[in-house]
Write a protein that binds this DNA or RNA. Structure first.
Length: 525
RNA sequence: GGCCGCGUACCCAAGUGGCUAAGGGGACGGUUUGCAAAACCGUUAUUCGCCGGUUCGAGUCCGGCCGCGGCCUCCA
C-alpha cells in the first residue's frame, strides 16, 4: 500500500487516485521561472515528480504528468532589459536549456510543457470568474487583487492564520502596494502596465503586455499554474509537486484562486488531493536563494550545467544518485564530496552489472525484454535449486519486495537504494565464488534474472541501466587503438610503456580498466 | 512573534515501539593482481543532540531544553 505524506494534512495518507476506476493519476509540478540557468535545487524539484511518476507507472497506474514554464515575470523582464535582449529571447534560451538538462538527468519529458504566455486567455477567464464572484477587486491604482478575506479556506494548506502573520517580515513587501490592498495577504491577479516603477517603467515598449478588460498589463504570479493545471489536468487532480518554498504563498494562492473560480466544478472539494513538497538543498548550510547568487556564483557548485557532462566533470547520473540518496523531504547540504560518493555508488552498481553480463553473456547494449520464455522460466527454477543459484535468487526476491516497501513508504528512495546495494553485494559475492568458471544454462538464466532485476529497479529510480560508454567516432576508435598497443606491450612485459598509455589517458580524463578475462576498456572519468 | 523541518559512526544516510540500529563512502587488516582498478572476506554505533516522562519494551510516542535551517507577498 502506497502512502504519501500530504503537506496539507501533514500526515502519511494512503494513496487512492481520484479516478473512480482507480487507474488514472494526474500530476502537476510547478516548473521554473525561466530567467536563469537551472541550479541543483531545480534538479531535485524535477527529479522528485519524475520518480513519483515512474513508480506509479510501475505500480500499474496510467499517469498524466504536466509541468509548466513560467515565462512571464518581473525578473524575466528585468533581465531582458539589463541584457538588452527581448524577454522572448531570454525565456526561449532557458526553456531550451531546461529541456536539455532534464534530458541529461534522465527526467522523462512531461506529457505537456505549457508556457504561461500561451495561456493568457485562460488566466483572464479566471480573473473574470473571480471578479464575478466577488473574490477579486480592482484596487485604487487599477490593479486587480485576489481578496484573501473572501475565502474562508484561505490558509488551510500552509496552516497560516492571516492575523498571526507579520506582513513584511520577509523584507520583500512593497509598502505602496500594501496601502492599496484590502488585506495584507491579497495578491495581484492582473497588473496594469502603467503601474510599473523604476527599471520596468523605463523599459517602455519592451515590457510585455496583453489587452484585458481591466487595461493592458500582465498576469500575476500563481495565476498561470491555476490556468494550466486546469486546462491540461482538470479540477481536481491527484498530486501537486513543488519545492517547499512554494507552499506559501504560491500554492496557497494558486489553490485559493482555483477553488474560488471553479467552485462549481469542484463542488466543495479541494483542488488538489495530495500536495508533495521537496525540501531544500543548501550550500554551506544556507539556502541557495537566487538572491544570494553572488555568493553561489563564487562557490561554483550551483549550476547543473556546470556540474554535469558535457560541460562539467560529473556523470549526470551521479547527481541523480546523490539526490535520491536522501529522502526528498530531508534537507540536503550540498558538497562536491557527496557527488564523489554518488559517483562511487554508481560505479559499484555498474561493475556488478558488467560482471553479471560477462558471466551470463548478456549484451549490455541491448535493453533486453523482461519477459522470459517458458523454457527460460523453467531454467530459472532449476537455477534456484543449484548451489550457486539459491542464495542469489533468494536475494533477488527479497530485494524486489523490500524495494517496493521502501518506495511505498512516501517514496523512500534512500531506503530503496540500500536494497539495491544489498542485492549488488549478493551478486558480487556469488560472482567472486564463480570467478573463471563456466556456468550451466540454468545458472546463466539466474544471473541474467539478477541483472534484469537490478536494471528494472534502477529504471524505476530513473538511473541509467548501464555505464555510459564512449560514443562512436574518433574517440572510440583511438581508444581501441591505444588499448591494442597497450595489450601488446603487456604481452611483451613492457610495463613502463603500458603504464605510460594508462597514465597519459588518465590526464585526459579517460581511465583504462583491465577486466577479468584479459580484456580492457576505456571509460570517461 | 506565527508556522514548519532537522540533529543516528570519521563523512553521507535509512529506520512503520519489539529479533543482532539498513546501505554507501572512508579507514585498517587479509585474499586476488605485472602494477593499478574492480571484487571478495573481516574490523569500524552496547547506542541514536541533552534531560525527564509514558510503556513489559523508545532512535521511534509525549513534555522541556540546546543547536542548525526554512517560510511569513514573484524563491525549487
Amino acid at each position: 500500500m502506497l502512502r504519501i505524506l500530504n503537506s496539507q494534512s501533514r500526515e502519511k495518507e494512503e494513496f487512492k487516485p481520484l479516478d473512480p476506476a482507480g487507474r488514472k493519476v494526474r500530476i502537476y509540478c510547478c516548473g521554473p521561472t525561466v530567467y536563469d540557468s537551472l541550479h541543483i535545487g531545480h534538479a531535485r524539484a524535477y527529479i522528485v515528480p519524475d520518480v513519483i511518476r515512474r513508480y506509479l507507472e510501475h505500480k500499474g497506474y496510467q499517469v498524466r504528468y504536466v509541468t509548466n514554464f513560467t515565462d512571464i515575470d518581473d525578473k524575466i523582464i528585468k533581465r531582458a532589459l539589463k541584457e538588452k535582449r527581448s524577454w522572448r529571447e531570454i525565456t526561449d534560451t532557458y526553456i531550451g536549456e531546461s529541456h536539455a538538462l532534464m534530458h541529461r538527468l534522465n527526467i522523462r519529458p512531461a506529457d505537456g510543457f505549457p508556457r504561461a504566455t500561451d495561456h493568457i486567455d485562460e488566466m483572464l477567464e479566471i480573473v473574470k470568474l473571480l471578479m464575478d464572484r466577488k473574490h477579486a477587486y480592482a484596487a485604487s491604482d487599477g490593479d486587480i487583487y485576489f481578496d484573501t478575506g473572501s475565502y474562508a479556506r484561505y490558509g488551510n494548506l500552509s496552516k497560516r492564520k492571516l492575523d498571526e502573520e507579520e506582513a513584511g517580515l520577509s523584507g520583500r513587501v512593497d509598502e505602496e502596494r500594501l496601502k492599496v490592498k484590502k488585506n495584507p495577504g491579497d495578491f495581484i491577479l492582473w497588473k496594469l502596465n502603467k503601474n510599473d516603477k523604476g527599471e520596468l517603467q523605463a523599459g517602455g515598449d519592451k515590457v510585455p503586455r496583453w489587452p484585458s478588460p481591466y487595461g493592458d498589463g500582465r498576469p500575476g504570479w500563481h495565476l498561470e499554474c491555476s490556468a494550466m493545471s486546469r486546462r491540461y489536468l482538470g479540477v481536481p487532480f491527484d498530486i501537486h509537486c513543488g519545492g517547499k518554498d512554494l507552499l506559501f504563498p504560491h500554492h496557497e494562492d494558486e489553490k485559493a484562486q482555483t477553488e474560488c473560480a471553479y467552485c462549481d466544478e469542484l463542488s466543495g472539494a479541494e483542488s488538489v488531493r495530495y500536495w508533495v513538497h521537496n525540501e531544500f538543498i543548501t550550500v554551506d548550510g544556507e539556502k541557495m536563494a537566487k538572491s544570494s547568487q553572488e555568493k553561489m556564483g563564487r562557490s561554483n557548485v550551483k549550476w547543473v550545467r556546470e556540474m554535469i557532462w558535457p560541460e562539467g566533470p560529473y556523470d549526470p547520473m551521479a547527481l541523480r544518485m546523490m539526490l535520491l540518496s536522501s529522502h526528498y523531504r530531508s534537507p540536503v547540504d550540498f558538497s562536491l564530496e557527496m557527488l564523489d560518493e554518488a559517483t562511487a555508488k554508481l560505479e559499484r552498481i555498474y561493475n556488478a552489472l558488467e560482471g553479471l553480463a560477462r558471466i551470463s553473456g548478456e549484451n549490455p547494449n541491448e535493453t533486453g525484454s523482461w519477459r522470459k520464455t517458458s523454457e527460460e522460466m523453467a531454467l530459472l527454477e532449476d537455477a534456484g535449486t543449484q548451489t550457486i543459484g539459491v542464495p542469489l535468487l533468494k536475494a533477488v526476491v527479497r530485494a524486489e519486495s523490500a524495494f517496493e516497501s521502501s518506495m511505498d513508504d512516501d517514496f523512500n528512495t534512500a531506503g530503496a537504494l540500500g536494497v539495491i546495494f544489498e542485492l549488488v553485494s549478493a551478486v558480487n559475492s556469488e560472482l567472486a565464488k564463480r570467478a573463471g568458471q563456466e556456468c550451466s544454462p540454468a545458472e546463466r538464466i539466474g544471473f541474467q534474472h539478477a541483472s534484469q532485476t537490478i536494471r528494472k529497479l534502477l529504471g524505476i529510480l530513473g538511473l541509467r541501466e548501464w555505464r555510459e560508454t564512449l560514443s562512436g567516432g574518433a574517440e572510440a576508435g583511438l581508444s581501441a587503438l591505444l588499448l591494442e598497443i597497450r595489450a601488446l606491450a603487456r604481452q611483451g612485459k613492457q610495463f613502463p610503456l603500458a603504464d605510460a598509455i594508462r597514465d597519459g589517458l588518465l590526464k585526459l580524463n579517460f581511465e583504462i580498466k583491465d577486466l577479468p578475462g584479459g580484456k580492457s576498456e576505456v571509460r570517461k572519468k
